[in-house]
Design a protein around this nucleic acid. Structure first.
Lengths: 131, 131
DNA sequence: GCGCAAGTTTACGTTTACGTAAAGGTAATC
DNA sequence: GATTACCTTTACGTAAACGTAAACTTGCGC
């Protein structure tokens, strides 16, 4: 069975060891120990991937923790599942808004760029062929 | 010509007055004054909207400031404009990743939900028609 | 047996984006 | 003239998510 050291995980998922220990401190990971040393299982790897994906989506660590707990079979808690699906829906809606915002901003930046370039051209003309 | 008080703006754009003053402190707004009182113009309203949109997209306030400076005609700086378009492109790419992450998570949550519901059904069956 | 790399804990520091009093000025209204 | 509603400044507080430094142990290679 495969195991990982903390720096294995850090390298593989591109996080710092500090972050990994922090997630453990927050109760999101619970690796085995060999003496002092942390030994991570593939299950831990998956959990860490979940955390990172949650972060990418914009969830807080607290929400990521909820997410992980959701995958814990010991909690057959349907209500939690439903509230979390709502959070995901909210996040999707926010993404839609972000897409709109970005499109809008792109449009405005494009026209700003045009004006800017036009102004530059005008300046050069007034200066004559001085360059 | 229309003007706004700070709480007009706060109401209209759904931000706190504290936030508005903070943005000014950061050099992102410079309203007129009538005595102590801040008087906002439509131009300020636009700037504040820009800030909020930038935030929604996920830009830091520092980046939002760059954004506003971009619209300032006194800076005919094309390089800034280009680097900012790059930031927007990066943000768009991140949004794509977020969409993927959300789709993936939705799939996983859906199957988790199924398993959960199935488990619940099983439990009820074993209990008989006790409810 | 020495050095070095990788691991550990403890603990204070940092950044961002405001929140939250505290303490007071101004202006309309009863 | 007292209340009420807004406005102001100053300033300390806060939450999240680690960064960073200190001080120490453990195992490997030579």
């Amino acid at each position: 069975m495969t195991t990982y050291s903390i720096s294995d995980l850090a390298r593989e998922l591109d996080v710092t060891t500090r972050a990994i220990r922090f997630y453990e401190e927050q109760g999101m990971l619970s690796p085995e120990r060999r003496g002092q040393e942390r030994i991570y299982s593939p299950k831990d790897l998956v959990a860490l991937k979940l955390i990172l994906r949650g972060k990418r989506i914009g969830f807080s660590l607290a929400e990521c923790k909820e997410l992980i707990d959701l995958y814990d079979p010991s909690s057959g808690n349907r209500k939690q599942l439903e509230t979390f699906m709502e959070k995901i829906a909210a996040r999707r809606a926010q993404l839609e808004q972000q897409l709109l915002d970005i499109e809008q901003m792109k449009l405005e930046l494009d026209t700003a760029e045009e004006r800017c370039l036009a102004a530059l051209a005008e300046t050069k003309q007034k200066q004559g062929a001085s360059a």
